[in-house]
């Protein structure tokens, strides 16, 4: 009986219309806004920045491709933009003088161990770029903490250059705020210009591609926790503003902690996640052995995300009402 009419219509479950957002569109918007800190890094570190960015991106895409091929998945997913973001983010977290081979290893680890072994896009627990960086930090600790000054700064001895946070932690030297804002300081590629990172982050916030709770929660909690310490002893502890603008905090808060896959699904979860990151950043920077702690803070809180999702289910409309 059914054979009588050949279906000329497309059958599908409702709804039958979709809005214009798509995964690659979101990803490429993030890539677009990342171009701001990328531009800053190229301005301040010239060839070093270009070299690291290129190697990181190429090896990220290549690893993604090889794994997709091995797992018999659709290889066109290489260009969904997610591996590109990982490549750029990884490059932005690396010191400008890092050897090319290290960058390549980092990119491989980021995609292979950070993403593909979990099942690829959407299934990873940790931010892949930070997994790559954490691996490099553990594998090549000296190289990862050796900083090169920006090309535009005339420094006599290039060998012993400290980041603004390292300078404060080990020798109590503060970098000028003006340099922090523009980015004329030592540090990893993306730790340079605070202003450009904030602009990029605001664009993403405006487009609603990142959860506003996360950067707001992180920055506020770092400000509050460090502010409390500073009020207690302004000699020993840095000004909270200095903590906001120095190091990788802004890049982490706007571009890494907000990674959709590895951040909580629920609003309450996002708040806890963000405040947790802020707290850990202050804890590691002030009391830890390292001057910077954004990477570990985000990775640690990433591991809590499944738990947060589980225990912060939002109240359903009408929940708790009496029948």
């Amino acid at each position: 009986m059914k054979k009588q009419y050949a279906s000329e219509f497309v059958l599908s479950s409702s709804p039958h219309i979709r809005n214009k957002e798509s995964v690659p569109k979101i990803m490429y918007w993030v890539v677009g806004t990342l171009m701001l800190p990328v531009a800053a890094s190229i301005y301040f570190f010239r060839m070093n920045a270009i070299r690291i960015l290129l190697i990181s991106i190429i090896f990220s895409l290549l690893t993604e491709f090889v794994f997709l091929l091995a797992r018999k998945k659709d290889t066109s997913a290489v260009f969904d933009g997610s591996a590109l973001i990982t490549g750029i983010l990884l490059a932005l977290t690396l010191p400008p003088g890092l050897k090319s081979s290290y960058v390549a290893i980092g990119a491989f680890v980021a995609i292979a161990l950070g993403k593909q072994v979990f099942g690829g896009l959407g299934y990873n627990i940790f931010n892949p770029a930070l997994v790559g960086r954490a691996f490099l930090q553990a594998a090549f600790p000296v190289a990862m903490t050796t900083w090169v000054p920006p090309v535009v700064q005339k420094v006599v001895d290039a060998k012993t250059f400290a980041t603004p946070l390292g300078g404060f932690k080990f020798s109590h030297v503060l970098a000028p705020y003006k340099d922090l804002l523009i980015g004329n300081t030592g540090g990893s590629l993306g730790e340079t210009s605070a202003i450009l990172i904030i602009i990029g982050g605001l664009v993403l916030l405006f487009k609603k591609y990142i959860d506003w709770r996360i950067p707001v929660g992180i920055l506020t909690s770092v400000f509050v926790f460090e502010g409390a310490l500073w009020l207690a002893n302004s000699e020993k502890f840095a000004n909270p503003l200095y903590f906001l603008f120095a190091g990788g905090l802004l890049l982490g808060a706007f571009f890494m902690a907000t990674d959709m896959v590895t951040s909580p699904l629920t609003p309450k979860g996002s708040w806890i996640y963000a405040i947790g990151i802020g707290f850990l950043v202050v804890l590691i920077r002030v009391f830890g052995g390292l001057p910077e702690g954004v990477m570990y803070s985000i990775l640690i809180m990433n591991s809590f995300v499944p738990l947060l999702n589980r225990y912060t289910r939002p109240k359903i409309l009408g929940e708790g009402g009496k029948k």
Binding site: R18, S22, G120, G122, K208, P314, L317
Partner: peptide
């Protein structure tokens, strides 16, 4: 709509828009 299906990337759009406040 001609859109490819991807894995969920946890963007929270559905949570942000669900009128019943579900996830």
């Amino acid at each position: 709509p001609k859109k490819k299906e991807y894995n969920c990337i946890g963007c929270n759009s559905c949570t942000e828009h669900c009128p019943m406040n579900l996830v």
